[in-house]
Design a protein around this nucleic acid. Sequence first.
DNA 1: TTTGTTTTGGGACGATCGTTCAGGTAGTTT
DNA 2: AAACTACCTGAACGATCGTCCCAAAACAAA
Lengths: 187, 187
Amino acid sequence: MVKLQVDGRKARGEKRRTELIEATLRIIERDGVAGVTHRTVAAEAGVPTTSTTYHFSSLDDLLVATLISCARDMATEVYWMIDRARSRGSRGAEEVAALLAEALGPRRGRTMAEYELYLLAARKPELRPAARRWLDVLTSMVRHDDEVAFRVFLAGIDGLLIQGLIDDEPPSAEELRPVVDYLLKPR
Amino acid sequence: MVKLQVDGRKARGEKRRTELIEATLRIIERDGVAGVTHRTVAAEAGVPTTSTTYHFSSLDDLLVATLISCARDMATEVYWMIDRARSRGSRGAEEVAALLAEALGPRRGRTMAEYELYLLAARKPELRPAARRWLDVLTSMVRHDDEVAFRVFLAGIDGLLIQGLIDDEPPSAEELRPVVDYLLKPR
DNA sequence: TTTGTTTTGGGACGATCGTTCAGGTAGTTT
DNA sequence: AAACTACCTGAACGATCGTCCCAAAACAAA
């Protein structure tokens, strides 16, 4: 006999868990991982302080859960970008350039949060699979006849993003376009 | 009349300043920026706690000074790498691959510290010139007939480094070599 | 030696931190 | 209804935090 009705208590708990994760992500986007404390997260989510310790055994657990969730979103985003490009029959240069420009412009805070995940993953091996997820998605979806060229492409995307983060003003899609073209051009 | 003999007091102070910066860098390499406090830095340097507040008006100032110093070292390192490659008459692929392998292997902690500078610079505009310094050194030293190819090269280096940081084990110079070759190959 | 400047370092203050705990509420099962 | 489980939350503890204060020491200039 399968349980169709879920436990209302667990449902509420699960909902609050995601609310806390979302609040944590907002704080990371705004102030970085350094700004994450039990109290700031609770205030951002509008819940009492102890709620974070109840649902996450420690602050570290909350951070790990948040950044894993963040990485999952990034992976699905990459997935749909590829899907979009394919449905248009393009090789993807335009879509990639647009995605990069958006990541460095309106979604700049989110991009910074994602690279804080990278650095946290460098120190915490448990986070590495999550940090590599978008790389894996790309690797599994894209046909790569040239292994080396594909690795260069992946590295180039990461480099463009992290360098774009320290530009005084974010580069536009038009500025990024030739570089992305170069990265995608076969030889 | 020019003062030839420096003030002994200021000399001592300057020495301790650099000691504090070096201690801070060691802590960042080991535990990340999150591990930097007045007390941990002072303990690492073997000086009393208040020494950090005396020589640096705030913790933030200490961090900024440390990461600027770190960036300067990185820039001179890049400078000498290019110089070394030139004296051998090579195009630099081997030297670059070796440098990357070293950055991701024995000097992994230092590399992580450098990318924490990147992320800090993304949030603090005052740090951006320091974070861009090694890029500027490369740009000024290397003749780039192809602007786009050069930008791809710079991005590729950054991408290889940050992706190498989340690998379960650091890539070797041999593994990196074909990718670096591809990045440097003119077309 | 006297006076002034810079560095040193111990002690302490208030704020904030992560986490614990116990009592209370809501929902499920019997 | 009673027993049980899961979630909620206010209060509080000890630890650690950044920073300030002030007297002592080291050094330079007079």
